[in-house]
Amino acid sequence: DEETLERIAKELKEKGWTLIVNGKLITDAREALKWLLEEEERR
């Protein structure tokens, strides 16, 4: 759910983690959240 996604995005940002999505590096939590939401919609 959205709360979980926001928590994940926040944790990613705090830890300075990066996500690699389709070979693209995502360092911004907002971008990561946007991607996660798009993935949820596809299901």
Rank of each mutant, 00 (worst) to 15 (best):
T4M: 13
E14V: 05
E14A: 08
E11N: 07
L5Y: 08
E31L: 09
T27E: 08
D1A: 11
W35H: 03
E40T: 10
R43D: 05
D1V: 13
V21A: 05
I20N: 03
T18K: 08
L5D: 02
D28V: 10
D28I: 13
K34D: 01
R43W: 13
E6A: 12
E38V: 06
K24R: 08
K24G: 04
R7H: 04
E14Q: 06
E38M: 12
I26N: 01
E3G: 12
E3V: 13
E11P: 01
K15P: 02
E41S: 10
A29G: 02
L5E: 03
I8H: 02
I8C: 15
E11F: 15
D1S: 05
T27F: 13
K15A: 06
L19R: 01
G16I: 15
N22H: 04
A29F: 14
E3N: 11
I26K: 00
E41R: 12
L5K: 03
R30D: 04
N22K: 05
E39T: 08
E2T: 10
E40S: 11
R30H: 06
N22Y: 14
E6F: 12
A9M: 15
E41A: 13
L36S: 00
R42M: 06
E39N: 11
R43G: 06
I8G: 01
E39G: 04
E11T: 11
A9T: 08
I8L: 12
A9C: 15
K10N: 11
R43K: 07
I20L: 10
R30F: 13
A32F: 14
K24I: 12
D28M: 14
W35M: 03
L12C: 15
T18S: 09
E40H: 13
L36G: 00
E2N: 07
A9D: 03
W17P: 00
G23L: 13
I20W: 09
E2A: 12
K34I: 09
L33K: 00
E41V: 11
I26F: 13
R43F: 09
I8Y: 04
T4L: 15
L5P: 01
L33M: 06
L25F: 10
W17C: 15
E11V: 13
E41P: 05
E41G: 11
L5W: 13
E11Y: 15
L25Q: 06
R43A: 10
D28E: 05
T4Y: 11
A9W: 15
R7Y: 04
K34T: 04
R43N: 08
I26Q: 02
G23M: 09
E39W: 15
V21K: 03
I26P: 02
N22L: 14
K13N: 11
R42N: 05
L25M: 07
A9K: 08
V21H: 03
K10V: 08
D1L: 15
N22W: 14
W17H: 00
E3S: 12
E11S: 10
L33P: 00
K24L: 09
E38G: 06
D1N: 10
I8S: 01
R43T: 05
D1Q: 07
E2L: 12
L12V: 03
W17Q: 00
I26L: 07
K10M: 07
L36K: 00
W17I: 03
E40W: 15
A9R: 11
E39Y: 14
G16A: 11
T4G: 04
A29S: 03
L37Y: 04
V21D: 01
R7L: 09
V21R: 04
E11C: 15
D28P: 03
D28G: 07
D1R: 11
R42G: 05
L33S: 00
R30E: 06
K15D: 03
